[in-house]
Simulated scan of single mutants.
Amino acid sequence: MAAPLYQIDDPAFSNLIIGSAALDQLYTGCRWTEGPVWFDDLQCLLFSDIPNQRILRWAADAASAVGGGGSVTTFRQPSQFANGQTRDRQGRLVTCEHGTRRVVRTETDGTTTVLAEAYQGKRLNSPNDVVVHPDGSIWFTDPTYGILSDYEGYQATPEQPVRGVYRVDGATGAITRVADDFTQPNGLAFSADESTLYVADSGASHDPDTPRHIRAFDVQDGRLSRDRVFALIDAGVPDGIRTDLAGNLWSSAADGVHCFGPDGHRLGKILVPETVANLCFGGPRRNRLFITATSSLYAIYLTTTGAQRP
Rank of each mutant, 00 (worst) to 15 (best):
R285V: 11
A231G: 12
G264T: 12
A246H: 09
P273Q: 04
A277L: 09
T292I: 13
H213R: 13
Y198F: 14
Y198W: 12
N248D: 13
T210C: 01
L224E: 12
F190N: 06
R242S: 04
P262H: 14
G283C: 12
Q220P: 01
S205V: 13
I233W: 00
P284E: 11
I241V: 15
R228V: 13
R242P: 00
T210H: 07
L245K: 13
G187I: 08
S296G: 09
A299Q: 03
T305E: 15
A246T: 11
L279D: 00
G261A: 15
T196G: 05
I214D: 02
R223L: 14
G282W: 06
G282L: 06
L289D: 06
D255A: 00
R226W: 10
C280V: 01
V219N: 05
L245T: 15
D239A: 09
S195V: 11
A299E: 04
V219F: 11
D221I: 04
V272L: 00
L249E: 08
G222Q: 13
V276D: 00
H213N: 15
Y198Q: 04
T304D: 10
A216Y: 03
D209E: 15
S251P: 13
F281W: 13
T243K: 09
N186R: 04
G236L: 04
F260G: 00
F217G: 07
G283K: 06
C259R: 02
C259K: 02
D227I: 10
V237N: 02
C259I: 11
E274R: 04
A216K: 13
F190Y: 04
F217H: 09
T304N: 06
S202L: 08
G282D: 09
G222K: 07
L197T: 14
L302M: 09
V199T: 04
A189S: 14
A231R: 03
L271Y: 09
G240A: 06
T196H: 03
S202K: 04
G261T: 12
G264Q: 07
G222F: 05
F230Q: 02
V257P: 08
Q220R: 15
S205N: 14
E274N: 09
D193K: 05
G261I: 10
F290E: 03
D234S: 08
L271Q: 05
F260C: 05
T303D: 14
P238D: 00
G282K: 05
G187H: 00
L289T: 13
S191A: 11
I300K: 02
S195W: 08
G264V: 08
G247W: 07
W250T: 02
I300V: 15
G236N: 08
L249R: 07
F260R: 03
